[in-house]
Structures are given as C-alpha cells and as structure tokens.
C-alpha cells in the first residue's frame, strides 16, 4: 500500500516537472528561420528554415529544349532524346554565411522545378554547385537509396554498375552526320568519372526573406557540345573516348546562366 502511495506521489512530481517547463517562453530560437521569435528563451522545435527551389530552364540556342525539335549546333542539325545531369554540393552564399542545402538533383530536360533544400535568411550573392557527383558518393552503392532518390537506379540509367560510378552528364540523340538535312546518326555521351566533376559558380542577386525562394537558372544544352565535330565525335562513354568526355565536362561551367 505504502508502495502504491509513493508511486502516485512520484507520478505527480514528474508531471509537475513537465508542466512547469512549459511555462518558459518557448518558440523558434534560430535567427535563420522564417518564424524566428526574438523573445523565445528555448526552442520548441517549430523552426522553419527558408526553402530553396531552383527553376532550371533547359534551352538550346536560346530556344526552349524540346525533344521534338531539331537544332543547329556546331553547324550540324541535331535532335536530343536524353538530356540530363547530376547536380551536387550546392552552396548558396552571401555576406559571411554559406548554406549547404546538401541535396542531390538529377536535372532532366523534361523537368524544370527542383527542391534544393533548406537555406538561411539574408541576401545571397553566389550560387555554386558541381555538375556530377562528389567522389565519395560516386563510389557509393545506389541500392542503398530509396527508389525515388536521385541517386537510386534510374531509367535511363545514370550509373555504370561498376567502379566508374554515376554518369554525371547524359546526352543522347541524333545528329545529321551525312549532311542530308535529317539527323539520323545516334550520338551518345555518357560523361562521368571523378576527374570530370566540374564546379559551377554563378553570381546571383537574391534576398531570402520568405518561406520559398526561387532561383532561375538557364541551361544551354548546345554549350555542352562546344568544340565537338558532330559529324564524327558522336560517342563517348568516358572510358572509351576520354578526350570527348573531358571536352563536355570542361564545357559545363559555360552552360549555366543566372536569370535575374
């Protein structure tokens, strides 16, 4: 009997502790958050950080990319059927702060909007990211990611299923190699391997104050092919034609443009 009474007192005491702690002024204590409460003494877990969305605008020679259209690139008529690449290592910086939203994006010709993760409030002056996948992740196991993750196996495949890792950039389509006006020769560029990771740095101008924040970035897919003879340099799976692979990787920094 005594035991039960003591247990009851103990329960009362513990619940009392819990209730008193609520009397403290709680709220969001993170000044980077949208709902930052300067009066809050302790965090109640309600903080909401601003979210970054990137709107990629896929284009070829200034026109919107369409897999149905034929474009004149390097003097040759071409048509795309696959146009996609990985983005990793996103950083958004301004003042003394650098946000690392930490998302991997598979940027596809057919999809324009990407959730890029959480950032902080304030003015931002630079967006940097890698085209490709960082070395550590490049050699990780795709089967450990949930099916809807950008790094999980995809169709068309973005992984070589051996040590070479992910295909950073995948461009496929047809080129008019014989000059008869109709693109009929397949081109196939599967560009990857650690040495072909490229860093992109864009000067931007953006004030992050609200919950969703969008950056518009234009992609010029013709830019990837700069310097290639599209009547003959039609294939590279990186390992077989490493020079073509390097050319395309080296072109990556000139492919992106910030749209104010």
């Amino acid at each position: 009997m005594n035991l039960y009474r003591n247990l009851f007192i103990l329960l009362l005491l513990t619940s009392a502790c819990i209730f008193t702690s609520c009397e403290e002024n709680t709220g969001c204590t993170d000044p980077n958050s949208i709902n930052f409460d300067p009066d809050a003494e302790s965090s109640d877990g309600s903080c909401r950080l601003p979210e970054l969305r990137i709107h990629f605008h896929p284009t070829v020679n200034g026109q919107d990319l369409s897999f149905r259209n034929t474009y004149e690139v390097n003097g040759v008529s071409i048509r795309f059927s696959v146009a996609q690449f990985y983005v990793s290592g996103l950083q958004l910086s301004g003042g003394n702060t650098t946000d690392e939203p930490g998302k991997y994006l598979l940027v596809q010709g057919s999809q324009h909007m990407y959730d890029a993760g959480e950032i902080s409030k304030g003015s931002k002056s630079r967006l940097t990211f890698n085209v490709g996948v960082d070395s550590l992740t490049n050699h990780s196991d795709p089967t450990t990611y949930p099916a809807d993750h950008p790094l999980a196996p995809k169709n068309p495949s973005m992984h070589w299923n051996w040590d070479a890792g992910y295909q950073f950039i995948k461009l496929e389509g047809l080129a008019d190699a014989d000059g008869d006006g109709t693109p009929e020769a397949p081109f196939e560029y599967h560009i990857g391997k650690d040495s072909n990771l490229r860093n992109i740095s864009l000067s931007i101008d953006m004030e992050v104050a609200s919950e969703t924040n969008m950056i518009n970035v234009m992609i010029d897919y013709a830019g990837f092919l700069n310097g290639l003879d599209l009547t003959s340099d039609l294939i590279s799976h990186t390992g077989d034609f490493p020079v073509i692979a390097k050319t395309i990787a080296d072109n990556a920094p000139s492919v992106f443009m910030f749209m104010p």
């Binding site: 196991d141 089967t143 196996p153 995809k154 169709n155 068309p156 495949s157 299923n161 051996w162």
Partner: peptide, 22 residues
C-alpha cells in the same frame, strides 16, 4: 553485392534496367 547489377544491367547480358527491375 555491388557486382550483382553489372551483368543484370549489361545490354548484352541480362539486358535489364535497375530501376525497372526495382
């Protein structure tokens, strides 16, 4: 473990795509 998807996804072996197999 990592080797498994090699022959499954090779065009000239089992010819599958890993995402479709999933």
């Amino acid at each position: 473990e990592r080797q498994v998807l090699g022959p499954i996804c090779n065009n000239d072996e089992l010819g599958f795509n890993a995402a479709d197999l999933a």
